[in-house]
Design a protein around this nucleic acid. Structure first.
Lengths: 340, 340
DNA sequence: TTGTAAGCGTTATCAC
DNA sequence: GTGATAACGCTTACAA
């Protein structure tokens, strides 16, 4: 109303939708439509508004828009860690797919801690994101409650089990263990061990171990399991594991590590001390092909998970057309290199 | 007003500040204070409000708060890429430091493209973030205009030059090149080459090369520069570089690569074909110590950059007390391993 | 195709 | 210490 003295307290004198509208000689809602349903605005006005927007350098206030429409173009993701090589590709694929459609990524890491995940989810929900993406199906009771009650789409990544309610995009970690066991057994190895992840809270890694052990038993082989010091550095934990296992009276002839960093540690420890033992990793981290011997490993569909998660989110938001067939169970690929 | 029939159109029947206030028998603003300045609310009411909040599972709507106060607890960051080993640590440190103080991270990647960076910045500004963090000092004109006009704090990371207006947190890439040249020269090498990054748009890498070349010339050594195919995969580009350089009539005795992935490619190519050439990388990527020979490299303060950037942001927002001394120029450390 | 009026859920302001 | 009231900048609903 007070057009001559618009500065009140907050956005004092800022360029708003109304500024643009006045300048263009239209109403605010028309400018709003220009941005959101341009086809509903006549070409002449469209052109005029475009001019004014450029001239004034107007940037739509998405916070206000989000409040008014109760749906911001923002998607929240909680992931165990950002810097690890494994999830980074998922984030990248997710973020890129989102931003290609005008959505932004709100990100936090949980470090495999259910409490940290819960607090991140709580904070995120306050932004009323368009969707929420989590990792794995292991959450705190508080998180479960929130995702059960929220109305926004929730997607779980890096996991796949039949009975869950939220959409899941990933693969069965148990089956990865099965694949590893069959592969090594098929190569003729008979004394096999699994090395757990040193990061506590990585339940998915435990599942890989379970699948591995169960399959070996089926095949008539008694599996051994090595548990590194909790929360020790993975590379060092891998070295430690290799040394400990090879000191045994009947050392293994093949070891399946919970991830490639552990495997790299094992490989190097074996290499440096002249031990002969096949090594299989999980992750296909960028360095796997750089090692000597190069590391055989199981490659999870990290990037695809991110892209597909974003796609499913955009579908349920109506931004993308619904896929006819929703294939959310992805494949892991065994990559045979020199180490096993 | 219509308390008996609150469902209008949007947030139909949602738990809001008012719901809590009514239930607790106080006014909305008191509940608001309970969250933002709890010390201004009497202990009895505080307790009562806490009960109601828990009972109703109330989550404050940060979008509404952001609109009302014109400052959301959200910080935007644009980084060349998320999945690369080099920036991942910066993001991690940044995100963790922020969330420790109740701020959330809005993230996008630019792939070293000034256009993508600009479009990300434009989208982000619409969320009126509390601050904006970019990478390097190379931006499009549009981005420069926006950061000049915005009133929120802008921080540039991974760079440090004296004359810039925005706060910069990082180091001099030119000086990294100087360090590399002096180090290799000091080790007795005399025929040296620099391998550029295969990713176009990585101007910082070019600066490292400049510092390297200029210093070598000062030292009386003529530098050679190898330029890989534009946008080829870095690991392959490194192999290619090594092969090409070693095929020369007077092959180099030491090569400084623009980053560790390139260096790893070079190292492996040399290793596999029995060539003898010292290799120095940049980045200290996680695999550097896993290679055979292990990779000598220059370690940038990736994590520290993220933490410090967040710290500076929080300081300028008044969340953290202003540091007495603001040391924004960080050190790179040369890590001597086996390869050089 | 365009406009008017009424919120969205919170915080700033000012009064008590 | 507490509250009434008016924004914040936009979109929904409805009308023209």
């Amino acid at each position: 109303m007070s057009e001559d003295k618009p500065r009140k307290r907050r956005g004092a004198g800022r360029v708003t939708l109304n500024t643009v509208a006045r300048q263009a000689g239209v109403s605010a809602i028309t400018v709003s439509r220009y941005f959101n349903q341009p086809e509903q605005v006549s070409p002449e006005r469209r052109e005029r508004i475009a001019e004014v927007v450029a001239e004034l350098g107007y940037v739509p206030n998405l916070v206000a828009g989000g409040l008014a429409s109760a749906r911001g173009r923002i998607v929240a993701m909680v992931i165990p860690n950002i810097s690890g090589p494994i999830f980074a590709n998922t984030i990248q694929g997710f973020s890129d797919t989102l931003s290609r459609h005008g959505y932004q990524l709100l990100l936090a890491s949980s470090y495999f801690s259910a409490e940290q995940e819960e607090s991140a989810v709580r904070a995120f929900l306050g932004w009323s994101p368009a969707a929420l993406v989590l990792t794995s199906r292991f959450h705190s009771a508080g998180t479960e409650k929130m995702i059960a009650e929220t109305e926004i789409p929730v997607v779980e990544t890096w996991d796949y089990v039949p009975e869950r309610a939220p959409v899941q995009i990933g693969f069965s970690h148990y089956d990865v263990g099965v694949t590893a066991a069959r592969y090594l057994h098929g190569k003729g190895y008979r004394r096999m061990a699994f090395v757990q992840n040193s990061a506590t809270g990585d339940f998915s890694a435990l599942e890989r171990g379970d699948g591995f052990a169960a399959t070996l038993i089926e095949l008539g082989v008694q599996p051994r399991v090595f548990v590194p010091d909790a929360d020790s550095a993975p590379f060092e934990a891998g070295k430690q594991a290799m040394q400990a296992l090879m000191n045994h009276a009947t050392p293994p002839d093949a070891i399946f590590f919970a991830n490639d960093t552990l495997a790299a540690g094992g490989l190097l420890a074996g290499q440096r001390s002249g031990l002969k033992c096949a090594v299989l990793g999980f992750g296909d981290y960028p360095f796997a092909e750089m090692l000597l011997p190069s590391l055989s490993t199981i490659k999870p569909p990290a990037l695809e998970i991110g892209v597909l998660a974003a796609t499913r989110v955009l579908e349920s938001l109506g931004v993308l057309p619904d896929a006819v067939q929703r294939l959310n169970l992805l494949d892991c690929r065994l990559i045979e290199r020199e180490s096993a």
